[in-house]
């Protein structure tokens, strides 16, 4: 019997029930489950998925890393993938909207490439199916790196070490736009967020995150309804939703114009290392995590396309702080990324 000081778990269970009573009645799934059952949903996978037609080898990953950091993949020889997907900013650029070729501003914010190995579709609007299909996009786009695929291949062939490395990584395939894309994709799949305090807590270390953050976790799964979309260890359902961010951008709706629910719909981003990746949303329009929570609390722009899972939340200021404390536990302290020495 628990008569004296309740254990941490019973406090949480009580909170969980409270959350259900006060506002998350639709979350049937959360009602009957204890915190331990909730935690079970957040265990990290043991392995990274690689496709059969581009399986992992160390040589491919290393070649991909060179290409990712090599500005010669751009017309100006000034812009590499890492210019925008900068490991020092958790693989984003810290800008509201990306700056491309000739400092031209793009329409959207640079997403992190953390955990893209698990993505079901790429880009904010899901217009690419695989990393291999995505990788040449930025290189040849006039707004981004502005290099034709022909010039790309010619440039790489002029560097003897690249010729050798491609031969080792893709023996039967030579240097082609396809092998450049495959090597880049292999490297990108190795970019996985590290163990965060949250993972240690999930793994059983009760004190790895504060009690406030633990309350935030429960709110995240109940009253605040966040886990409806930000699911499992990578905090995404790989789905597309209009969450009410003020925007003119149709997002996935541009590709699915007849589907009401896809207008202004964007891919659910991972929340890993999220406090290191401001400003937020597809257009970088939300400056801080506090403002993100405030936006969700109001439900954002109520338009026909807005997801049925978005609604005003009536969060107290304590609850907002708890959610933010929880989000901060998703950030890992990783060893610094070493820049590769590029072949000349």
């Amino acid at each position: 019997m628990m008569t004296s000081a309740p254990t941490q778990r019973s406090v949480l269970t009580a909170l969980l029930l409270l959350g259900v009573v006060t506002g998350a009645a639709h979350d049937l799934w959360a009602q009957s489950r204890s915190v331990d059952e909730l935690k079970d949903r957040y265990r990290r996978p043991q392995t990274v998925p690689f496709p059969d037609d581009n399986s992992f080898t160390q040589d491919r990953a290393e070649l991909g890393k060179l290409l990712f950091f090599d500005p010669r993949l751009s017309a100006s020889s000034l812009v590499s993938c890492a210019t925008c997907h900068n490991p020092a900013f958790s693989w984003g650029d810290g800008l509201p909207k990306a700056l491309g070729h000739g400092m031209r501003q793009l329409n959207r914010r640079t997403p992190t490439i953390l955990n893209v190995a698990w993505a079901d579709a790429l880009f904010w609007d899901g217009r690419a199916d695989t990393l291999e299909a995505q990788a040449l996009g930025p290189i040849t786009s006039p707004d981004e790196m502005n290099l034709s695929s022909q010039e790309l291949v010619e440039r790489l062939k002029r560097v003897p070490r690249y010729v050798t490395l491609f031969r080792i990584a893709y023996p039967d395939e030579n240097i082609t736009p396809a092998t450049v894309a495959k090597a880049l994709a292999t490297f990108e799949r190795t970019v996985v967020s590290g163990i965060a305090p949250f993972d240690e807590w999930i793994g059983g270390s009760e004190s790895a995150i504060s009690e406030q953050a633990q309350r935030g976790f429960v709110l995240f799964n109940t009253k605040a309804n966040c886990a409806k979309c930000h699911r499992a260890w990578n905090f995404t359902d790989s789905g597309f939703h209009d969450v009410g961010v003020p925007t003119e951008d149709l997002g996935r709706g541009k590709h699915l114009p007849k589907l009401g629910g896809m207008q202004h719909a964007f891919k659910t981003p991972t929340l890993r290392n999220v406090n290191r990746r401001a400003p937020y949303m597809h257009n970088g329009s939300v400056a801080t995590l506090r403002e993100v929570i405030d936006l969700y609390d109001t439900g954002g722009v109520a338009r026909p396309s807005r997801s049925p899972d978005i609604r005003p939340l009536s969060l107290t200021s304590d609850e907002k702080e708890a959610l933010i404390a929880f989000l901060k536990t998703l950030t890992s302290v990783d060893p610094p990324v070493c820049l590769p020495e590029l072949p000349r």
Partner: peptide, 13 residues
Amino acid sequence: PGALEVRCAIHPK
């Protein structure tokens, strides 16, 4: 009659 591809708009897979 016909063969329809059915999808979910939210989850492309």
